[in-house]
């Protein structure tokens, strides 16, 4: 054993114990890492290979990096248009969720008495009820309002679906801001709206950024509501990519290129904001 290892074993208190279980866990962590990585590696490798190469030796490193699959994927699934559609829906939802969600979070964080709890319970429902159960009623509501096949419908639905996490997360952030700051502004004669915009919003900026990142990932990745609310003419990325599979999957090189393209924006986000994403998704969770 190297000295670092033994020093570290002492640190975690394994010096005088049988670390068998511990090393079994290490093996488990490495095994699961491989389980995660091998499919992703296969996906990326396949996207540079011809179908014949993929089937000959699926896990081989591509011999020549060909972007033919990427070019074909962009063309066959009309991916540029699909990505623009997704982007429009993302931007619309981001704006709506912050404009509508921030005031509600501010109110819940600052209102006195039982109303705050009532508000938290109300938005908390959003975590318990699976949205998948509401496909039909939502489809009917959108159809009746004439918004079927219109990306605006997705903005309406996604905003409602992300409001729960937005309001509760922002309310938790706003609670950490001292009240004295508002009281000072109030003495200067500022109203609630002004205080919210001028004082609270800048102070809660990091929470807003977290919410916007989570919203981006959710909206970009969402599949089922886009499937039922959009038609053949307008597609989001998540609807366009599976088109490359066709009835029977015959060209995995093509499909894998499409998947890689659809993943890249989210992975870029993850690379930059990994800590924010993980803490945003876990914050509060641990307090329970």
């Amino acid at each position: 054993m190297t000295s670092t290892l033994s020093r570290w074993l002492r640190r975690i208190g394994l010096k005088n114990e049988t670390p068998v279980v511990y090393f079994a866990n290490y093996a488990l962590a490495i095994a699961y890492s491989l389980v995660i990585l091998v499919p992703l590696y296969y996906l990326v490798a396949a996207s540079f290979k011809s179908n014949r190469e993929i089937f000959l030796s699926p896990l081989a490193w591509p011999t020549s990096f060909s972007f033919a699959n990427y070019a074909a994927a962009f063309e066959k699934a009309d991916l540029i248009k699909a990505m623009l559609t997704s982007l429009v829906v993302v931007i619309g939802t981001e704006i709506a969720v912050v404009v509508v969600g921030f005031p509600a979070a501010y109110a819940i964080a600052r209102i006195r008495g039982k109303l705050a709890t009532a508000g938290e319970v109300y938005f908390g429902i959003g975590f318990i009820i699976p949205t998948f159960a509401m496909l039909v009623p939502v489809f009917l509501m959108i159809a009746k309002s004439g918004l079927l096949f219109n990306p605006l419908a997705l903005v309406l639905v996604y905003t409602a679906q992300t409001l729960a996490i937005t309001v509760l997360l922002l309310a938790a952030v706003i609670r950490t801001i001292p009240r004295e700051l508002e009281e000072a502004a109030m003495i200067d004669g500022a109203g609630r709206l002004q205080i919210m915009r001028r004082v609270m919003f800048p102070l809660a900026r990091s929470g807003v950024v977290t919410v916007m990142i989570l919203t981006f990932i959710f909206v970009w990745n969402e599949f089922i509501f886009a499937l039922i609310l959009l038609g053949r003419n307008v597609r989001t990325v998540q609807l366009a990519v599976p088109l490359l599979k066709g009835e029977r999957l015959v060209d995995f090189g093509l499909l894998s290129a499409g998947v890689v393209i659809s993943i890249v924006p989210v992975f870029i986000m993850f690379a930059f904001f990994q800590e924010k994403i993980v803490s945003g998704l876990t914050s509060g969770a641990v307090k329970g």
Partner: peptide, 21 residues
Amino acid sequence: AFVGLSAPAVIWFGLFMIVPL
């Protein structure tokens, strides 16, 4: 003021998360 501030979110959320149920 607080009720007014939260009203849009409460209604929007309710419309697509509670009413469908």
